Simulated scan of single mutants.
Amino acid sequence: MELGGKPLTDLVGKDAYRQLLGVKVFDVNGNYVGYLKRVYVERRSGRARRLVVRLLDGRLLPLKPQELRLTSTGLVVIRRLHVEAGGLSSSLRRLEEAVAEIKRIRERILELDEAYIAGEMSRDTYLSFRSGLEFKRRQLLSEVRELVEELESQVPGLEEERRGLLSKLRSSSARERDEAARRLRSIRTVIARINELLESAKHELSLEMELDDFIESCLR
């Protein structure tokens, strides 16, 4: 497979790498395998020394910058990977992490605004930090919207399976009822977790929309 983009070794600067945190990571076949969790940058050269990818199966994968390429869709790992997709659990975990990260960014933006208003930093420094945070915020919001759509689409199927298990409890043998009861408890837990995270994510999305509307009104 011919790989597009450019080698990650071409990228220089701590701020540049900071903006890549959370971007999607793909294997050489174009399959989504996780997201960029952490970057270690050398102080003198400004180049990445090591990067850590959170895989769909929950593992943390350390990589050298030579093993990654930067493309328009995200990062591509140029060596072979074997990743077991974690299904709903990985999507739930990523949604929880993304929502928490959006909250941290919003708090950081408020801190920056207050510091700038108080005259604690120059305009150039303020704009540099804020633009980086805004870029990351937009990336996360896009990812959260995709995850919300994905998880919402899973709920009807889980509800249908839950109803089927309830019927099975009334018409099966004792052994089958035990198995159905265990699966039913598991599905109930998953549905409750999905609904909890969806509510939290939608709340964050509404807050971010209000923030964007406020910023636009100030710029008119």
Rank of each mutant, 00 (worst) to 15 (best):
S45V: 07
I187P: 02
G164Q: 04
R177F: 00
S142K: 09
L51G: 00
E107V: 06
R50V: 06
L166H: 00
D212W: 08
G5F: 08
L211F: 09
R43S: 12
L20Q: 02
I109Y: 00
E143V: 14
R54F: 11
I109G: 00
S153C: 00
E97T: 01
Y35F: 15
N29S: 10
Y35T: 12
M121A: 04
E120P: 00
L3A: 06
G30K: 02
E120M: 11
S153T: 04
Y17S: 11
P156F: 12
R163Q: 15
L207E: 13
A48C: 06
L112H: 02
A118K: 07
I102T: 07
A85D: 14
L36F: 09
Y116N: 01
E160H: 00
E161G: 08
Y126D: 10
A192W: 07
S200E: 15
E111M: 03
K24V: 07
Y126Q: 11
Y126M: 10
L21N: 05
F214M: 09
G5V: 07
L133Y: 12
H203K: 12
D213R: 13
A174T: 10
R137C: 03
G132T: 11
L140T: 02
R130M: 04
L55S: 00
D15E: 13
G86I: 06
Q154S: 13
R49N: 05
L147N: 00
E216I: 07
L165A: 04
S167M: 14
L165T: 06
R185G: 12
R123Y: 04
R47G: 01
F135G: 15
L184G: 01
R59V: 01
C218L: 14
R93S: 13
T125A: 13
R137G: 02
S45R: 12
Q154F: 05
A115D: 08
K37L: 15
V155I: 15
G46I: 08
V52L: 10
L63N: 13
G46H: 10
R79Y: 09
E176G: 03
F129G: 01
K37T: 03
L70Q: 14
L165H: 05
V52W: 05
R145H: 10
G164C: 06
S91D: 14
S206Q: 09
E160Y: 02
E196C: 00
E199A: 14
E216V: 07
V28W: 10
L11T: 15
